[in-house]
Design a protein around this nucleic acid. Structure first.
Length: 599
DNA sequence: GATTTCACGTA
DNA sequence: CGTACGTGAAATCC
């Protein structure tokens, strides 16, 4: 019997939770509450299209094994992603998440594969031996993954889950059980509806992450090498040539040094001495600090230029290309759906901090273009939404939100912008001057929201974003800690304020991204980069305009579903839904062949 | 050899 | 005009 039929007979339909586990060797197990099956990845893909259940996975690892096998799932419930949402922090392995769901103290949960030194190691070895013999005694695969103490068996969490088909099915079933516990936990909370919606988009964002990692970012190798040649010279033929290039680059700076003075430019300490010898006294040698001395001595300008080239040479040079740009012209790195703090996506291998100059090499494949879209003024708009400040929400109807804000405050636009950003992220002193005080008066609801976040964070109380993500403020230097001096307390306040805005923006962004991912699929469009508020979609040229429109429509759809008081979204909570003005979100969208051509 | 500090790229 | 992240080299710790 094929998987579609089996799942259908088990009653699994659209949106129903179906457990899914994939062993490192690619073996796939599928499970519902009372049954389990082994299936090839292709059958999972077929069942996804036919039934569209919500596949439950322990983590992104599942999709990372399925996507290369051609199975791209529509939606999922990712236990790790939802764990981070519910409980905060970064750690989210099965044993850790399970202990939290069961209300067990997580302190004893070992990291998967963790080997603690000394006596603990001996203990672990003994425990594992005992587990192995118990498993053998009870026919090799039937031992319960949940131990008598309620924790997951460390023998299972350290890889034993994949040891047999029976175990793999049990692991899939257990993921499903964890998902149901998570769903219940979310539904029980204040604003549970939003939490469940966030859990779903955060989960599906993990599928997107696996696809981003697998597909990579289109990059033209020849153009990339041209860019590098312009900045750091041609590719050195050997180590000697490389050293010569470095020496020449250093010489361009050191020739401005006073006679007889030299330094290793890679050593901040020596650079500081070098600058002192040239009459420039600085506490450190960071670029922003050196900027004001740019004209005091030619050494400074030369050094700043050297730093730029050195950054490219060491981090984004030929070695970087060789290591991360595949023969298929795709730049690849790993992706996480949420960092440990506010929940933004992260990427490795420089995908998120590539120097702007390298964007010239990000070029669509033949016959394709990019639809590039970035959210405009996302943070103040998100603030209007999450705080439900009607005055600020009214300002979001403008394409440039800072114009009505400036008019309201009676200041010019740059002043209004600085005051807004200071309010959201926290000026270090006072209330940001006259504009800051007017801001607080003009937008009292937003002000109260930020003040409340600031107070809670200072006091070490945990916060939750609008979408329900826990931002941990407790533990590690909480309130009342003697070492928590005024500066550190203030920093915590800024962190908390920032996390609620940045976190909510990240949730909106991911909901937008997974919506685009789903809707754009029929056009052959693929998201190839996510950059906090920017999407890069790779699409066949013939569908570019359709895709651009779709990206815009998806933002409107997402905003309706996400924003409070917006066009009927989130009503049913005491009827306040219709009270607020809708918050308008905007995106700047362009169709380009090269990323550098956007904007 | 592992960890921390400095620095800097992106948003 | 603050926060976050990832990276690499030097400095420092053990």
């Amino acid at each position: 019997m094929d998987l579609v039929t089996a799942l259908g007979q088990a009653g699994a339909g659209r949106g129903d939770l179906v457990g899914l586990a994939v062993a490192p060797d690619g073996t796939v197990a599928v499970a519902v509450a009372g049954a389990g099956w082994m299936a090839p990845a292709s059958a999972v893909a077929l069942a996804d299209r036919a039934l569209r259940p919500r596949w439950v996975t322990w983590s992104q690892d599942t999709a990372l094994r399925l996507v290369p096998a051609g199975a791209r799932l529509a939606t999922c419930w990712d236990v790790a992603a939802v764990h981070r949402l519910l409980f905060g922090g970064w750690r989210a392995d099965p044993g850790w998440a399970w202990a939290h769901l069961r209300g067990l103290p997580p302190g004893e949960v070992p990291a998967p594969g963790e080997r603690t030194p000394g006596a603990a190691d001996l203990f672990d070895a003994a425990e594992e031996d005992a587990a192995a013999s118990r498993a053998a005694a009870s026919d090799g695969g039937r031992k319960d993954p949940v131990g008598p103490d309620g924790y997951l068996s460390r023998e299972w969490t350290r890889g034993g889950w994949a040891d047999s088909p029976v175990r793999l099915q049990a692991w899939a079933r257990l993921a499903r059980e964890a998902a149901e516990l998570q769903g219940a936990a979310l539904a029980g909370k204040e604003g549970g509806e939003a939490g469940v919606a966030t859990a779903r988009s955060e989960s599906t964002a993990e599928l997107l992450c696996a696809e981003l990692a697998t597909d990579g970012l289109p990059m033209d190798r020849a153009v990339a090498e041209q860019v590098l040649t312009r900045i750091i010279g041609p590719r050195p033929r050997d180590e000697a040539a490389s050293a010569a290039v470095r020496a020449a680059r250093d010489g361009e700076v050191l020739r401005h040094a006073p006679a007889g003075v030299t330094a290793d430019l890679r050593s901040p300490v020596q650079v500081r001495s070098l600058l002192a010898a040239a009459g420039v006294e600085v506490p450190d040698t960071r670029a922003w600090r050196l900027e004001e001395f740019r004209d005091s001595h030619p050494l400074v300008a030369a050094l700043l230029q050297w730093r730029k080239a050195e950054r490219i040479a060491t981090t984004y040079g030929y070695g970087w290309l060789d290591e991360h740009l595949g023969p298929d012209g795709r730049l690849r790195g790993s992706w996480t759906g949420s960092d440990g703090a506010a929940g933004r996506m992260t990427a490795s291998n420089g995908l998120h901090n590539m120097p702007a100059a390298m964007r010239a090499a990000v070029i669509a494949a033949p016959g394709h273009v990019f639809v590039r879209a970035d959210l405009g003024q996302i943070e103040p708009r998100v603030l209007a939404a999450v705080s439900a400040d009607q005055a600020l929400a009214a300002a979001t109807s403008a394409d440039d939100l800072y114009l009505p804000v400036a008019a309201q405050l009676g200041v010019d636009r740059p002043t209004a912008k600085v005051a807004m950003i200071a309010a959201m992220y926290g000026q270090t002193t006072g209330h940001g001057g006259q504009a800051g005080w007017r801001m607080r008066a003009a937008y009292p609801v937003a002000r109260a929201y930020l003040d409340s976040a600031d107070r809670s964070a200072r006091a070490g109380r945990d916060l939750r974003t609008y979408g329900g993500r826990l931002v941990r403020m407790s533990g590690g230097g909480g309130s009342g800690t003697p070492g928590a001096d005024a500066a550190r307390v203030a920093a915590r306040g800024r962190y908390g304020r920032n996390a609620l805005i940045q976190g909510a923006a990240a949730e909106l962004f991911k909901m937008w991204a997974v919506t685009v991912r789903a809707r754009a699929l029929p056009l052959g469009a693929r998201i190839v980069l996510c950059l906090h508020d920017e999407l890069l979609v790779h699409v066949p040229a013939g569908h570019a305009q359709q895709a651009a429109r779709l990206v815009s429509d998806c933002l409107a759809e997402t905003a309706r579903r996400w924003a409070p008081g917006s066009l009927g979204a989130r009503d049913g909570q005491g009827g306040e839904g219709a009270a607020g003005a809708p918050v308008r979100f905007i995106a700047d969208i362009s169709v380009v062949r090269c990323w550098a051509d956007a904007k």
